[in-house]
Design a protein around this nucleic acid. Structure first.
Lengths: 258, 258
DNA sequence: CAGTGGTCTAGACCACATG
DNA sequence: ATGTGGTCTAGACCACTGG
């Protein structure tokens, strides 16, 4: 009945595949904003799956704000509700910066091996005082640094593939997610982060203060990254300079499902 | 078989009731940290519900970090993983402040009716320039203001119960959630928030700067509150003074279910 | 191998909104 | 009265982990 027929294949969970298909349709405008989706039963028939499976997928979309469900009425494509830079998702800095209309750039600041602070080694499950690799970078919008990151990476992640010298080269770990997934076999699934405000003059990146106004507000995110098995992988500190960046967040009551 | 037998009653969804029961057991230590929970089938039998229903409840607990599931092994009570002040949940300021060991206090700063800014009236679905009630408060820790809030409340919410004069009295809307739920019949289910850092000297609450160091970092949360039907209820601005407060956040990849 | 969680189904019934 | 989403069941099969 539908052009561009695409039915789910086995191999990954049907529910995830249906999420993908529906996201495609929403983003490509097959389902226009504010329109009503086909009913759960219709989608179930179209995809040849049970209504339960369709409901799971729609639940995921609703949780992520793409869709709004109304009991007794239907499921609707959310209007502009698309949250722009969700703080509770993993951020892709390149997308973030280009998405706001700036030219994206990357700058190496420094890399070195040093002993981990007690808090860091504990969070990563390392021996007290174990050495870690510290890599500091800046990301620029139209040439102006707007994000600084400090990554603290345990050497056991990469030392089977790379020498210490390799790792000190500018850009060796950039982009970070691809480096971790490709070279280290670690896929980051989740961060546990602490968020606080600060001022540019109160922070140091690789022993240097950030460029620009020392009174610029800064959003500081300190976080531990975990892989899919719940094992801590690395420690990361992000400094988001407040001038040009805004972040959104959906906040809910606890245990309010989806 | 189990002491303190408590079986779910109908009336609210079984799944939610099972969540509550399990949370009680976890918090009261019936299931100690790191211990394995009974298997899904055992719980299903105990509660006399289907395994599907138990799984839903366990999924909610896993999403909220109380529990860690391991395929082929079991479901385990998470260790200290309890996130302290989750930024993605609705914050109860009194709990937040007392929970960090300070004495909680509340201070009325001002209340007035004024026309809404275009951004606010649009977000709340009001006519351009409609009048709203602005209520400004401070919350103190050991007497020191650590949180300021500005609530922008559309008059239609309360004008059937209260006069405008009533609403201008100090504490008329405090605690806010109880006021909204009791007097206005509005239960807040969700906020869509924007988070940014700032500096104390850059903000004004009821025409006054905050007390204390003008260079104090401030976390600013601007948010629209929605009720369960997705209707915007009020606009709120929170100023979290960065000195004593920390906030945590779990960040995930998009569409990674639970 | 046995036991666990992960996925999926088909069908039932309910609660809600709308005409 | 109809059709929608919300809840729940019983049972099947799969995938993973551990002894």
């Amino acid at each position: 009945m539908v052009m561009n027929e695409r039915l789910p294949q086995r191999s990954s969970p049907l529910e995830s595949q249906i999420v993908e298909i529906l996201v495609e349709r929403i983003q490509s405008g097959v389902y226009p904003v504010n329109s009503r989706l086909p009913s759960e039963s219709e989608l179930a028939a179209e995809f040849a799956v049970s209504r339960t499976t369709v409901r799971g997928a729609l639940g995921t979309l609703a949780t992520n704000g793409l869709v709004k469900r109304r009991h007794g009425v239907g499921t609707f494509i959310s209007p502009a509700t698309r949250i722009s830079n969700p703080l509770n998702e993993v951020i892709n800095f390149a997308e973030l910066i280009t998405g706001q209309g700036y030219a994206f750039g990357f700058r190496h600041i420094g890399a070195r091996f040093r002993p981990a602070e007690p808090g860091v080694s504990e969070a990563l499950g390392l021996a007290a005082g174990a050495e870690i690799l510290e890599v500091s970078k800046a990301f620029t919008a139209d040439g102006v640094p707007v994000i600084y990151t400090v990554n603290l990476i345990p050497p056991h992640l990469f030392e089977q593939c790379y020498s210490r010298q390799d790792m000190l080269q500018p850009g060796a770990t950039e982009p970070l997610y691809e480096f971790l997934e490709g070279a280290c076999g670690q896929r980051i699934e989740q961060y546990v982060a602490t968020v606080r405000p600060s001022i540019a003059r109160n922070i140091l990146i690789h022993d240097q203060p950030p460029e620009g106004d020392p009174l610029l507000p800064v959003l500081v995110i300190e976080e531990v990254a975990y892989n899919g098995s719940g094992v801590p992988v690395l420690f990361e500190i992000e400094y988001l300079l407040g001038d040009r960046m805004k972040f959104d967040l959906v906040r809910r009551r606890r245990f309010s499902n989806r």
